[in-house]
Write a protein that binds this DNA or RNA. Structure first.
Length: 352
DNA sequence: AAGCTAGACAACCGCGTTCCG
DNA sequence: TCGGAACGCGGTTGTCTAGCT
C-alpha cells in the first residue's frame, strides 16, 4: 500500500505518546483548532504522521472525552445497539457521549463479548446459544452439505460449543469433525443479507432506544434490524441514500422485506429498565432529529423510504417469536442460494 | 524475586469514501 | 470528470500492568 505523504517519512515516530507530545498537540489544537491533520505534525513540532495525530486527538486528548469506566447503562446500550446494527462502532459511540469508537470497540472485545457468552448468549447473533443449537439440530438433518453451514457459526459460538461439550456431546462431536473455517470473505460479524441503507440502521437504533424507554422490551427489536443493517453498504454516508443504482434495489427490498422474519425473543434484558430512562430519552431525541434530516434528504431525492417503524408497528410486530423464520434460517437460505449460484467455487473452497 | 500469562487499552494498518483542485 | 490527498472506520497488533506460579 502507498503510504500517505504525511506518513512517508522514515523518521516518523510510532508507538505510545509521551506527555510532552500530548502537550504540544493540545497547545496546537487550542490555538489553531482541528483539521488539516497532515499539516499538524509540522506545525505542532511533532515527529508523528497526521493520521497518528488525529487518532491521538480523537481517542484521547479531546476535552469532551470521558476517561472513567463504562456505566451499566452504557454497557446495556452498547449491547442493544450492537445487536441492532452490528459492529458499527462509530455509530454506537455517537450514542454514548464522551466515548469514542475505539473505546466502545475495546470494551466490547474485552468485556462485553465475554459477558454475553457467559450468560449463554451469542455475542454475534445475540441469540441464546441454546436456540442456535436447536436451530442447528433442526436444520441439520436436511442439509446435504453440512460443512457449508458450520462457517456460519462464529468463533464465540464455537468456543461456547467447546465449553458445552458436557451438555451437547453429540453435537459438539459432530461439529468438531465437520467444521471448516469460513471463507476469508465470508462475513462473520454480520449476516450476509443484502444491503439496507443508513436510514434503516438509524431507525433500528431509534427503535432500540425507544423500546428501552417503553415497556416493550420483550421484543428483540435489535435483532430484527441485524439482518437489515449489519451488512448494509460499507459506506454509511448519506450519499448512499442518493445512489440511483441502489434506489430500485432499495424499493424491492422494502417491498419484500418482512421484519417478522427476524424478530426474536429478547436475549438481553436490562435488570432495571427505569434506570435507563433518562439516557434513552436523550438518545431517542437525538435520533429523531437525525431521522428527520435523513428523511428530508430522501424525500427530496425521490427515493422510496423504507419505514421500518411502520412495518413493525403495523402488523408483524406482535407476531414475533423464535419459532418464526429465524435469523439463522435466513442466513442458511442465503448460503444455499450462494452455493447454488457459485457451486463450483464453493466446492473447491470447502472440500480441499 | 523472576518468569509467565491474561486482560486492558492505546496505537497502527489497510481499505473505502469523500473532498478538492 | 478525474486523480490524488485527506479523512474515517473497523480490524488487528503492540505494549503495559497486575496477578499468579
Amino acid at each position: 500500500m502507498v503510504r500517505p505523504p504525511c506518513c512517508d517519512k522514515l523518521n516518523v515516530k510510532k508507538g505510545l505518546w509521551t506527555a510532552e507530545e500530548d502537550a504540544k498537540m493540545l497547545a496546537y489544537v487550542s490555538k489553531h483548532g482541528t483539521g488539516n491533520w497532515s499539516a499538524v505534525p509540522k506545525k505542532a513540532g511533532l515527529k508523528r504522521c497526521g493520521k497518528s495525530c488525529r487518532l491521538r486527538w480523537t481517542n484521547y486528548l479531546r476535552p469532551d472525552l470521558k476517561h472513567d469506566s463504562f456505566t451499566t447503562q452504557e454497557e446495556e446500550l452498547i449491547v442493544k445497539l450492537h445487536g441492532a446494527i452490528g459492529s458499527r462502532w462509530s455509530i454506537i459511540a455517537q450514542q454514548l457521549p464522551g466515548r469514542t469508537d475505539n473505546d466502545v470497540k475495546n470494551y466490547w472485545n474485552t468485556k462485553l463479548r465475554k459477558k454475553l457468552s457467559e450468560r449463554g448468549i451469542d455475542p454475534v447473533t445475540h441469540k441464546p446459544f441454546s436456540q442456535i443449537f436447536a436451530d442447528y439440530v433442526n436444520i441439520g438433518g436436511g442439509l446435504t452439505k453440512p460443512t457449508t453451514r458450520i462457517g456460519c457459526l462464529n468463533r464465540d459460538l464455537k468456543n461456547a460449543l467447546a465449553s458445552k461439550t458436557e451438555q451437547f456431546p453429540t453435537m459438539v462431536s459432530h461439529l468438531s469433525t465437520q467444521a471448516t473455517p469460513p471463507p476469508k470473505n465470508e462475513p462473520t460479524e454480520d449476516n450476509g443479507n443484502p444491503s439496507f441503507e443508513l436510514l434503516a440502521q438509524l431507525q433500528a437504533i431509534k427503535l432500540v432506544t425507544e423500546a428501552s424507554t417503553s415497556n416493550c422490551t420483550n421484543y428483540n427489536l435489535k435483532t430484527a434490524i441485524v439482518s437489515s443493517s449489519s451488512s448494509a453498504s460499507s459506506s454509511l454516508s448519506p450519499s448512499c441514500s442518493s445512489s440511483s443504482s441502489s434506489s430500485s434495489a432499495q424499493a424491492n427490498l422494502a417491498q419484500n422485506f418482512c421484519w417478522r422474519d427476524f424478530l426474536l425473543e429478547d436475549a438481553f434484558l436490562p435488570p432495571d429498565a427505569s434506570q435507563e430512562q433518562n439516557m434513552m430519552e436523550f438518545h431517542s431525541e437525538r435520533f429523531t432529529s437525525q431521522m428527520q434530516i435523513l428523511q428530508g434528504e430522501q424525500k427530496s431525492e425521490q427515493v422510496p423510504r423504507f419505514d421500518g417503524v411502520q412495518s413493525i408497528q403495523s402488523s408483524n410486530f406482535e407476531a414475533s417469536s423464535s419459532h418464526d423464520t429465524s435469523f439463522v434460517d435466513a442466513m442458511l437460505h442465503k448460503d444455499n442460494e450462494m452455493f447454488l449460484e457459485f457451486s463450483g467455487l464453493l466446492e473447491e473452497s470447502i472440500y480441499y
